[in-house]
Write a protein that binds this DNA or RNA. Structure first.
Lengths: 136, 136, 136, 136
DNA sequence: GTGGTCTAGACCACC
DNA sequence: GTGGTCTAGACCACG
């Protein structure tokens, strides 16, 4: 277990996104401690510097707070967490709709296609994993 | 006019995507001629090398055909165009649903949010333009 | 109440500065006793080790004297206090002027800007609190 | 020439500040190209990675724009430059006044002290250079 | 040649 | 133990 990363985007960025999702989902609760830089590095199979950058980025996003000599923690402010949830939601929805619009799909087509995929995924949602977005 | 590009992804890749969308949408019809490499380069405000790569990439994807000394044309095979349409649709829908799932949103929440955004965008869909996805 | 500290500088250093200011201002009079290491630690919400270092540092600066088994006291020498006052003043003024010079501001601009801010702060000087200086 | 850096703050941060000042002062004009990452690294006597970080930070501050494969340039938007000037000015003035207030100096004392130093510096302003702020 | 990412390994200060 | 900075050197993709 270690290097299941998408080649088209920086590792640090994929990790930032992954952690954000875990926070939004609730897998990482408010105030909870993240693994240490070194620990997370081993766990993810990357260099500690990369994790350092991830944590720095998360802190800049105000999603995480780091206490000197103690560690890095999910922000304790519930308002920020709600806000993050909404931001991420909006960002993804907007991006998706923009793409679909640019390809000329109508709202009804979009909803319909979505329904179809949702039904199909009903029993095997856990299989969904990696999708490449960038260039190869 | 020229450099409205996202800093987080290669320009050539953004152009590939943009052209694919135009083809799927029908703005670029089957068999239609694309601008010359040089012309497109000026039009997009980028280096001709970049456009060259874009066309090569599109050719590799089999959505475009280059005829020696004549130019580059949208593929004339309607089957391929339908296929492209489906591919792109699937890719985007799947990516979107995966993201939403990873954030813990339920199908009903997803559909609901989508509806909300679709309503809001009704009159100003043309305003939608740039969205950043990658790191800044 | 406890951790209103700037992330970009060591806590112990911020505390040293804060206490120096209190002494210069007169909030802590000559010969006055400082809280015990443990008491101060609780009061500031930091580790006792950190306070220990603060007191050691203050002692090294000769603005504080530690009497075995009795506690830590502001130095009783009024000359030293005057000197401290001048040192701090000079240090800050010099730093400020240097910065302004490096940004190309002329003496008149500096004085003018200062006046403006002083007027504006007249009624709410107590609101001023945190300013970050270091990296984020 | 190479390592005239303050030990108490990160090199990358000192460089960020230095460049900001040069821009505000006008030594680096709008749209002007900065040295390449590697060039600047040699010039400053630090590792290219450090410069990379500096440029990234400046870009995030919207003070600099980087064009892929071409280089890094001072932002061309004059409004942003004015804004930067005001921001930096405000930041320094505010920090200075806050410090002086906390030490109990009155507005008149502050202005007076400033005047005194300004007069003294009249002929040797070029001597002013390094000042340490952080802990040693 | 440009910026950008990553690794490896070291050192530091803080708690 | 923690996070943070820096170096050295490599590799990559873009223009």
């Amino acid at each position: 277990m270690g290097d299941e990363f998408n080649a088209s985007q920086p590792i640090y960025f994929q990790l930032v996104q992954r952690i954000c999702k875990q926070i939004v989902k609730g897998d990482l609760g408010a105030g909870e401690k993240l693994p240490s830089v070194r620990g997370m590095a081993i766990q993810a199979g990357v260099n500690p510097n990369t994790i350092q950058r991830v944590y720095t980025e998360l802190e800049r996003m105000d999603v995480v707070e780091t206490k000197r000599g103690q560690g890095t923690f999910v922000t304790a402010k519930p308002e920020r967490l709600r806000q993050l949830r909404d931001e991420l939601m909006a960002e993804h929805v907007l991006a998706f709709l923009t793409d679909m619009h640019q390809m000329g799909f109508s709202p009804v087509e979009i909803i319909q296609a979505l329904r179809e995929y949702l039904d199909r995924q009903d029993g095997n949602s856990h299989k969904v994993q990696q999708r490449g977005r960038g260039p190869e």
